[in-house]
Amino acid sequence: MDLSIVRLLEQYDFHTKLYQNCLEDIRPSDAQRRVTLDTNHIAWLAGNLVSVRYQLGKSIGLREQSKFDEIFKNQRPIQNHITYPDLVPIREEWLRITPILREKLLSLTKEDLLSDQPFDTPLLGKSNLLNTITFIIHRESYSIGQMGLLRKIFGYEAMQYN
């Protein structure tokens, strides 16, 4: 197994836990609450992260499809006219795809990781699968940080690392 994927899977596992910690005890009304009309809310952030894990899975051969594929497809930004799903079913989708995707990521060979991707990733230049996975893991950090900040803004305890 390639050492780079091992390191990325450590981050993947850490994000899996932090994602759940961010959603802990969030009331449904706060999940849909936005600081301004220009910001995302927790339900969109959580659902978008689920969508990204499903999309990564599809790009490496998985056939699983999210229940919320239509709402979040093509990395569509938050839509003002949509009431997003509650966190319970979003979290269930996260828990469903996460172990399946992890197992598939573990099975990737060095050749798989260096294979061309149909698009370039920001800041990483010409993309291969490894760069794509690296970017997605970084993007998860960014979104989890936003959810953690929204927790504090709405008066919840800080996200826990344990």
Rank of each mutant, 00 (worst) to 15 (best):
37 L>V: 15
39 T>V: 11
39 T>P: 01
40 N>H: 11
41 H>M: 11
42 I>F: 03
42 I>Y: 03
44 W>G: 06
45 L>A: 06
45 L>E: 03
46 A>R: 03
47 G>H: 08
48 N>R: 13
48 N>I: 10
50 V>P: 06
50 V>N: 07
52 V>R: 02
53 R>K: 15
54 Y>S: 07
57 G>T: 01
58 K>H: 11
59 S>T: 15
59 S>F: 12
59 S>H: 09
61 G>I: 06
65 Q>W: 02
66 S>R: 04
66 S>D: 00
67 K>M: 08
67 K>V: 02
68 F>L: 05
68 F>N: 00
68 F>P: 00
69 D>N: 10
71 I>C: 05
72 F>H: 00
72 F>Q: 00
74 N>I: 04
74 N>L: 12
75 Q>N: 15
76 R>I: 13
78 I>T: 08
79 Q>N: 13
80 N>V: 09
80 N>Q: 12
80 N>F: 10
80 N>E: 14
84 Y>A: 00
85 P>A: 10
86 D>F: 01
87 L>C: 05
88 V>W: 02
89 P>E: 05
89 P>D: 08
91 R>A: 13
91 R>K: 15
92 E>A: 13
93 E>W: 04
95 L>G: 10
96 R>F: 04
96 R>C: 08
96 R>V: 07
98 T>A: 13
99 P>I: 04
100 I>C: 02
100 I>W: 02
101 L>I: 01
102 R>F: 04
102 R>H: 10
103 E>C: 11
103 E>V: 11
104 K>L: 10
105 L>F: 03
107 S>A: 14
108 L>Q: 08
108 L>D: 09
111 E>C: 06
112 D>A: 12
114 L>M: 15
115 S>T: 13
116 D>Q: 13
117 Q>S: 13
119 F>R: 14
119 F>S: 14
120 D>Y: 02
121 T>E: 13
121 T>K: 09
122 P>G: 08
124 L>D: 03
126 K>L: 15
129 L>R: 05
130 L>S: 05
132 T>V: 12
132 T>E: 09
133 I>V: 15
133 I>K: 02
133 I>R: 04
134 T>E: 01
135 F>H: 10
135 F>Q: 06
136 I>T: 07
136 I>Q: 05
138 H>L: 14
138 H>F: 14
138 H>R: 10
140 E>L: 04
140 E>A: 00
142 Y>R: 05
143 S>C: 12
146 Q>F: 08
147 M>A: 02
152 K>N: 12
